[in-house]
Design a protein around this nucleic acid. Structure first.
Lengths: 224, 224
DNA sequence: CGATTCGTTGAGAGTCGTCAACGGAGGTGG
DNA sequence: CCACCTCCGTTGACGACTCTCAACGAATCG
């Protein structure tokens, strides 16, 4: 466990979970928070292990994934700074539902499930924050299913670019905050499939150089 | 709007949402409940429409689905008796996130979002029930993503059969509560793919006749 | 009994995963 | 500063899987 430095503290306070709490609830959550760091590829926990905490990412990225019985992995979610995960265990059960691995060096805030449950009983703000967080995740996860089932690989990539370039038309660009293999898993693709999807998007004006991606015409990309 | 008959009322009371409420909260929810019926293929609401209610299924089945811009449909969830849907709008927003269609004749209970929000402020039980419901859905939806990404069509069917036959080994049987085309959508498959998956499971002792499915050896099915 | 819907089967095409080889980037150590 | 190494990303070849379209048979409902 480490001390909470200024930048991490700001990230934590701007989290959707904490940002809308009243002063007393906020103070209680900060008091409960438990900072820890992991190195790239460290496993935070495995599916089925007894669960005592949920997490907020302060820096870096974390993979949540499952294994099939052949050992093949499938990502369920990629969590970045400000994201919260495993909070559904507040009401569900006492074992983790998936594996979690640090995709790079990460710092996390851990919150004891029991203490937050208790806090939610006393502080209406905390209960509301939990509901908001759960709703957000549910929405995002349903979006993911719909995208998986409706879109091909190039369409998924186009969709990702369009939601991360910040513009509606004209040219734009995206800087990936992580490795491409992570983006592949996030979109439910093998790394090779992501690579081929980028290639196929060249003809609509998408240029990839390392982690920076140029889009010559956002409107054209929407037609994919 | 119709009167609440005895069987529907029992279904409603046994819902995970209502069953654990205290007497006053339960009474308030029953008072808010608004019963309505739809015929097969009726559309309850469309994605993007202003939302005023969330729903509980009392009888029949409801499809939640999205459209891509070519008009192709993909099911996100199939809801049966006791299931609740669109409750994430309690905290999220004021438009529906997907289309909902009656897969057969259905009766539903509708709950006004605003009034339940208000109730959740006063009654801790209601807030807890919302959290539990959201957590359950989030878990189920994440399971769905993992299954989509890790399993082939025969594996998905086998998994469905194993979780619905109620036994751990030996022979077993499943009676589908709905049409096969609904099961196909639920598993993220075209109806033809479901049919072929059943065919391929014949060699491990799965026999299909109409809606009843015989399994000669459950342990063998687990090896798929 | 006729009509419509549902389910199955076949053929074909498209998409994506896997395996393998190659090239480049970044980091380490000499 | 360079040589080397490892990891990441790309590309090609191949195969498995599943969607689509079409036709046929079965079941259901009036």
């Amino acid at each position: 466990m480490l001390r909470l430095n200024l930048r991490d503290k700001n990230t934590l306070l701007r989290t959707s979970f904490l940002s809308e709490l009243g002063p007393t609830a906020m103070a209680s959550m900060l008091e409960i928070a438990n900072i820890s760091s992991y190195e790239a590829r460290d496993v935070l926990f495995r599916e089925g292990e007894p669960a005592d905490c949920f997490y907020t990412v302060l820096s870096g990225y974390v993979r949540l994934y499952r294994l099939n019985k052949d050992g093949r992995e499938a990502d369920i979610r990629i969590c970045g700074p400000g994201d919260i995960f495993a909070e559904c265990l507040l009401t569900l059960g006492d074992t983790y539902l998936y594996n979690a691995q640090a995709a790079e060096n990460v710092t996390l805030a851990r919150f004891d499930l029991g203490r937050v449950r208790q806090l939610a009983e006393q502080e209406k703000d905390v209960a509301k924050a939990i509901m908001r967080s759960l709703s957000d995740h549910l929405r995002g996860t349903m979006d993911c299913i719909a995208n998986d089932r409706l879109q091909t690989a190039p369409q998924r990539v186009a969709h990702y670019l369009l939601t991360h370039c910040g513009a509606e038309e004209g040219p734009g660009s995206v800087r990936l905050p992580f490795q491409k293999s992570l983006l592949a898993g996030m979109l439910g693709l093998a790394p090779e499939a992501l690579s081929r999807a980028f290639s196929s998007l060249r003809k609509v004006g998408v240029t990839v150089r390392g982690r920076t991606i140029q889009i010559s015409d956002i409107s054209a990309l929407k037609q994919i």
